[in-house]
């Protein structure tokens, strides 16, 4: 198996957006979404993730689940770059409504193979209207 060049928009490649709207531990949606993203990453598509509503809570830093007996899967978001998932759109209004700022989010980065493995941020803070446009630009939207 060889790593293929990422060619967004090339024939056969579709734009996939995974929409994450749920908090991480109260329901199974967040973990299910993450697993689908990791499995789907094998298919060399142009993948983006969107976080709004309670979905922004999934990538808040400092999560410690020892006391509730559940697996803390938040570190796995930091592995997304290894799976060539490098676009995580986070809605600014959703953060503000929850008293959060971009500083409250984990450092999620990827290494740009085409730029001497330079480490770059995967999180992109966007406005609600920009999020609307991002959704409108997709071929496939999967909502969790």
């Amino acid at each position: 198996m060889t790593t293929q060049e990422e060619l967004p928009g090339a024939s056969g490649t579709k734009r996939f957006l995974y929409v994450n709207r749920r908090a991480p531990y109260g329901t199974i949606y967040a973990l299910e979404s993450l697993e689908v993203v990791l499995i789907g990453a094998a298919f060399d598509q142009d993948v983006s993730l969107a976080f709004f509503d309670d979905g922004v809570y999934q990538i808040v830093k400092g999560q410690d689940t020892k006391g509730i007996g559940m697996k803390n899967f938040s570190p796995t978001y930091r592995a997304l770059g290894d799976y060539e998932v490098t676009k995580l759109y986070v809605e600014k209004e959703a953060l503000e409504e929850r008293g959060l700022s971009p500083d409250d989010l984990m450092d999620i980065t990827y290494e740009d193979e085409d730029d001497d493995w330079a480490e770059k941020p995967s999180i992109r803070i966007v406005s609600r209207s920009e999020m609307t446009e991002i959704m409108a630009a997709q071929d496939v939207i999967l909502s969790f």
């Binding site: 198996m1 990791l38 990453a41 094998a42 570190p75 796995t76 930091r78 592995a79 799976y83």
Partner: peptide, 11 residues
């Protein structure tokens, strides 16, 4: 230990 995930073979 770092990512709480066993990586896929290509990764």
């Amino acid at each position: 230990e770092e990512y709480q995930i066993a990586p896929a073979v290509r990764v």
